[in-house]
Amino acid sequence: MNKMPIYAAAATILLSTTAMAQTTVPPAMPNTPAATTPMTPGGTSGHSAFIQQQRADQHLASNLIGMNVYGGADENLGEINDLVLDRTGTVTAAVIGVGGFLGVGQKDVAVPFQAVEVTRNADGKNRLVLRKTKDELKAAPEFAKYEAAPATTGSVTPTRPATTPPATR
């Protein structure tokens, strides 16, 4: 009796059951914002590894950089030149260019980002308010960007191989 058709049928059944046993990722709950879906550990693929949409309470750095910052009395204090992030991605400071005219004579001052009130108007535009005065920012210390220590490039004199005196017997 030829057992080959039985083996082929058994292999077909086994292969088809493994395909049916694969699970699919369930869709997100309808009331869960897409931006709060946690990332899967290890960077695995799938929709839960990505943020799909910005939430209403989130702001893009590209929209904040270059924006004017206003004081409590609605005076223009300067503009956001940069944002400082820590290793976890938290924005720790806003670097504001203050003083000067058309960038000349301007200095950068960093303030804790929590001190900057970021709001969104009804028309969707951001507004930045810092409860400081122009004089306080002008008197503040200038922000210095991190610069790595320069590498030493001192010349190295090559060493000569040691010479051994001729052996004496």
Score class of each variant (00 low, 15 high):
126 N>I: 05
35 A>I: 06
17 T>P: 00
83 L>S: 03
85 L>V: 09
146 Y>P: 07
8 A>W: 05
28 A>Y: 02
50 F>T: 14
149 A>Y: 01
14 L>Y: 08
72 G>V: 02
134 K>L: 15
14 L>G: 14
79 E>T: 11
40 T>P: 13
4 M>I: 14
2 N>Y: 04
137 L>N: 01
164 T>F: 10
153 T>N: 09
62 S>Q: 07
63 N>S: 13
9 A>F: 05
46 G>S: 09
59 H>K: 03
110 A>M: 12
98 V>E: 03
96 I>R: 07
124 G>E: 11
1 M>A: 08
166 P>C: 00
39 M>C: 03
167 A>E: 08
132 K>C: 01
22 Q>V: 11
113 F>P: 07
27 P>I: 10
85 L>K: 06
17 T>Y: 08
115 A>V: 08
39 M>Y: 14
145 K>E: 04
145 K>V: 00
32 T>E: 13
138 K>S: 06
3 K>L: 14
33 P>E: 12
97 G>V: 07
149 A>T: 14
1 M>G: 09
70 Y>C: 01
111 V>I: 15
41 P>G: 09
62 S>E: 08
115 A>Y: 14
5 P>D: 04
93 A>V: 10
40 T>K: 15
38 P>R: 11
159 T>P: 01
87 R>T: 06
161 P>Q: 11
100 G>R: 00
78 G>R: 02
98 V>C: 07
164 T>Q: 09
139 A>G: 01
95 V>W: 04
96 I>G: 07
153 T>F: 06
109 V>Y: 00
122 A>T: 04
24 T>M: 01
73 A>C: 01
104 V>I: 04
131 R>S: 08
151 A>Y: 04
139 A>D: 15
80 I>G: 05
35 A>Y: 05
92 T>Q: 12
58 Q>D: 15
146 Y>R: 12
64 L>A: 14
28 A>R: 11
140 A>S: 13
2 N>G: 12
116 V>F: 06
53 Q>A: 15
125 K>H: 11
56 A>W: 06
36 T>R: 11
54 Q>N: 08
70 Y>D: 06
117 E>L: 13
29 M>R: 13
132 K>V: 07
92 T>Y: 09
148 A>F: 10
144 A>S: 11
160 R>Q: 10
67 M>A: 13
150 P>F: 13
1 M>W: 08
164 T>P: 00
43 G>E: 10
169 R>D: 07
168 T>H: 02
83 L>T: 06
106 Q>T: 15
46 G>N: 07
167 A>R: 04
43 G>Q: 12
126 N>L: 14
62 S>F: 03
23 T>E: 12
26 P>E: 02
20 M>Y: 10
164 T>V: 14
83 L>G: 04
169 R>Y: 00
146 Y>T: 11
15 L>S: 15
111 V>H: 10
60 L>Q: 11
32 T>Q: 13
1 M>L: 07
8 A>M: 12
